[in-house]
């Protein structure tokens, strides 16, 4: 085939040697700074998030099909915890766990928090993140593909919708979402 490639062959933009080590250190800062904090206050927030999505987007379970009951280990590499998602249509669960011991799971999705957030927010493409090695999946690939497609069918405003689900706290939740978008956009440019 024609060889009119326009980029350095074989190098992922996000992983060029010697680039952005200070930024990477800053990006990983939350993993260390937040490590001493307990996870307990996070659990009701996560429960509210997953229950809101499950209640307001029932079509999601049709797309998940037989994978709805599976356990997805989501590893935001720059945070001091992992998330275990079980998108069950009746009793959905999203809980935070420490990395060790490794929670039981069928599939694992790994990436920085910014990358994962931007993907859920419909701003970044999962395949492109895989090509650039910013996203890694192991275990049950079919389940991850089903989850990715199911989540991608949620409307663009899913994060805003989540923020609205926090009732009287929706205004600060929206502000937090907006700040996260800005922060993760920085992360995105960093890649």
């Amino acid at each position: 085939m024609a060889r009119d490639e326009t980029a350095q062959p074989g190098r992922a933009p996000g992983n060029q040697a010697g680039r952005g080590s200070l930024r990477e250190s800053l990006r990983d800062l939350p993993r260390h700074v937040l490590a001493p904090l307990p996870l307990a206050p996070l659990q009701p927030v996560l429960r509210r998030v997953v229950e809101h999505v499950a209640a307001s987007h029932r079509e999601l379970f049709g797309r998940l099909g037989p994978h709805a009951g599976k356990k997805f280990l989501i590893d935001p590499t720059n945070l001091p915890f992992v998330l275990v998602l079980q998108p069950d249509s009746i009793q959905p669960q999203l809980v935070a766990r420490r990395r060790q011991p490794v929670p039981l799971h069928d599939a694992k999705i790994t990436g920085s928090f910014g990358v994962l957030f931007a993907m859920i927010d419909g701003r970044l493409d999962g395949d492109a993140l895989f090509f650039s090695r910013d996203l890694m999946i192991t275990g049950d690939t079919e389940a991850v593909v089903a989850l990715r497609n199911a989540l991608d069918d949620l409307d663009e405003n899913v994060v805003d919708s989540l923020a609205a689900a926090f009732g009287p706290l929706s205004a600060p939740a929206r502000l937090a979402a907006s700040m996260l978008r800005s922060l993760t956009a920085e992360d995105r440019h960093d890649r």
């Binding site: 085939m1 024609a2 060889r3 009119d4 490639e5 326009t6 980029a7 190098r11 992922a12 090509f131």
Partner: peptide
């Protein structure tokens, strides 16, 4: 380019 597989683009057979 960031969206392309292998981060490389081609005009394939269309150009020649």
């Amino acid at each position: 380019l960031a969206l392309t597989e292998g981060h490389r683009e081609t005009q394939g057979a269309f150009q020649g």
